[in-house]
Design a protein around this nucleic acid. Sequence first.
DNA 1: TCTTTGTTTTAGATTTGTCTAAAAAATATT
DNA 2: AATATTTTTTAGACAAATCTAAAACAAAGA
Lengths: 220, 220
Amino acid sequence: MLNYSTSEENYIKAIYHLQKEGSVTTNELAAELQTRPASVTDMMKKLRTKKLVHYEAYKGFKLTIDGKKLALLIIRRHRLWEFFLAEKLKFSWDEVHAVAEDLEHVSSKKLIDKLDEFLGFPRYDPHGDPIPDANGKIETGKQVCLPDLPLNTTGIVCYVSDQSSAMLELLSHKKIGIGTKLEVKKKFSFDQSLEIKLRQQLATNISGDLAKNIFVKYDE
Amino acid sequence: MLNYSTSEENYIKAIYHLQKEGSVTTNELAAELQTRPASVTDMMKKLRTKKLVHYEAYKGFKLTIDGKKLALLIIRRHRLWEFFLAEKLKFSWDEVHAVAEDLEHVSSKKLIDKLDEFLGFPRYDPHGDPIPDANGKIETGKQVCLPDLPLNTTGIVCYVSDQSSAMLELLSHKKIGIGTKLEVKKKFSFDQSLEIKLRQQLATNISGDLAKNIFVKYDE
DNA sequence: TCTTTGTTTTAGATTTGTCTAAAAAATATT
DNA sequence: AATATTTTTTAGACAAATCTAAAACAAAGA
Ligand SMILES: [Mn+2]
Ligand SMILES: [Mn+2]
Ligand SMILES: [Mn+2]
Ligand SMILES: [Mn+2]
């Protein structure tokens, strides 16, 4: 794998995040990167000659296969460092991103693979986003705690942070367990309680305290 | 503390290493950094306006108080990362330097101080060089294993890596312990054995196997 | 002291990544 | 369809860090 500049890497990563499907426009990318449209055009020409983006004037751009591979490598670095900062250095969730933004550009393959191993091959970063593996494979979907699941979106329960018997008793009574599919129908700001609907069942209410401890996976 | 470019930091660190005492010349620094004398002159003018070096045309240069502080901060980052790579990620001694050369430029103060804490405030990097503390204080001298102690230089035993009873028996017989002052008089390449001299005693011989496990501190 | 040699600095060019202002193209409105 | 608006690209400039070639300076030798 060739070596790319910090600037090139930031562009590639930003395009990846913007191109859910279809292509990305000059203004979108300029806004994302806090730069000027003219700078974006310049960089797209460069990334085209390096075969990292498909680009024709006035027609937007998207990553090539190689571009996507590079993006996933940078995201892998970014999220592993975020995990390291939160887990080992006890940074809080909102502090990890800025530092990882710099660390992600240190490009030693061995460093990242050894770091991955040292961390125990974590699957999610501190924000619940999946971490690509050494081959660039990434799990689709996102892991969040229940209050952060968008309304009317199906989520699958994948983890419960509080495993006390009191908690498990409540869960089994509500018929919620690992693998349960559910949707959040309403969020009440007064007490953070949620109205949720389980597959083939009536809606039920759960407290904010309970919801905070339930983690779900969903497709973005 | 202001922020400096990777290039500026590499220059500052190189000057620190070259100016044991007295001042550094253009050609020396160009050789150290694998660059051209003209580039060095350009950079010296820039670092002078930033008050990091004392510099007058044709008269060499040395770090100001602020320049020295910055150098020690970069060296602190470098050596902490080296320790992390060797200790936690199981890199070998000869692999850590190149990666640390990049990591040292990530400038978050909190990152480095938390890393220091996570590592247990190590005092020496994997090459035996002392690590400056959070205030930039650095221990003078260097820690190496006995075969690496320069000939006829007084070293003080500060650590023994093999602490088996067989080993300690041999050491006490030779009257070598923590704090013992000694000099290496001769190195025999045939079997790596050494002829050493202890303070106020006759010279004695020790095997390569023993010598490898004895660490000494000395002034450069 | 004068001259030769080696070192250091200057002058001017290059690359990378950015910017502003103006022109060109695409899109939306009447 | 013609015109107005928005988006994108081009043209030209700039700062950072580097280079080569030439000029200026310092040190050493005759
Ligand atoms: Mn970044
Ligand atoms: Mn994240
Ligand atoms: Mn470096
Ligand atoms: Mn070292």
